[in-house]
Simulated assay, not measured.
Amino acid sequence: MARKVTIEELRQMAEDARESIWAQAKEYGREPKIYLHWSAGHYETVFDDYHVNITGNGEIYVTGDLDEIKAHTWRRNTGAVGISLCCCYNATSADLGPEPPTAAQIEAMAQAIVAVADGLWLTIDEAHVLTHGEAADNEDGLWTHDSYGPKTTVERWDLEYLGTDESPKYNPWATDGSRGGDVLRGKANWYRNEE
């Protein structure tokens, strides 16, 4: 059952789960990960596949404990936390559909990244915080599976772009910081430095 939480409650949940999540990740010879998603659903529909769901108005919901192994990122779920924006119903790489990411969701996701990363003692970089699209293309160098992301088969391309001025269009080869993951990590690091 989903329950609404504050950023501080989310940070505490991550702290409480730190030892367990690190132990899970170490079984696979790596550090914990945070994977960022969109649900491809509606603004108010929360899914149990993700630890954290952020609704259209930026409210944060959790579905269980953060060290629970959920089905959010293929072959990468152990020792990882999945955070999802509830949005992008009927999205395509050319159009984010009638329910694109909202400004409130994007800012809440950046703050949620900080809360979870702080609780788990993680650096906010592409080695630890990836969109599903980046993980699908093994951009962190793990190679736990054949690539299936925006640079290859485009089976998963969650958050490749956000539909904002900072991240206006689908371009998985962009190096100017306009990819969705770059924008979200940048915002998260800004929030972390403001604290």
Rank of each mutant, 00 (worst) to 15 (best):
T73D: 09
T73N: 09
W74L: 13
W74Y: 12
R75W: 10
R75S: 10
N77V: 05
N77K: 11
A80L: 12
I83V: 10
L85T: 10
L85W: 12
C87T: 00
N90M: 15
A91D: 06
S93C: 10
S93T: 02
A94V: 03
D95Q: 01
G97V: 05
E99D: 11
P101G: 10
A103M: 15
A104M: 13
A104H: 11
Q105G: 15
I106H: 04
E107F: 09
A108E: 07
A108Y: 03
A110T: 00
Q111I: 01
A112L: 08
A112K: 08
V114N: 05
V114R: 00
A115K: 02
A115H: 06
A115W: 00
V116L: 10
A117P: 07
A117T: 05
A117C: 02
D118K: 09
D118C: 01
L120M: 14
W121R: 15
W121C: 15
T123M: 14
D125Y: 09
D125V: 09
A127D: 12
A127S: 15
A127K: 15
H128I: 12
H128E: 13
V129I: 11
L130G: 06
H132S: 03
E134V: 11
A135M: 11
A135K: 03
A136L: 05
A136K: 03
A136G: 02
E139C: 13
D140R: 13
L142S: 09
W143G: 08
T144A: 13
H145R: 12
D146P: 06
D146L: 15
S147Q: 07
Y148F: 03
K151H: 04
K151Y: 01
K151A: 07
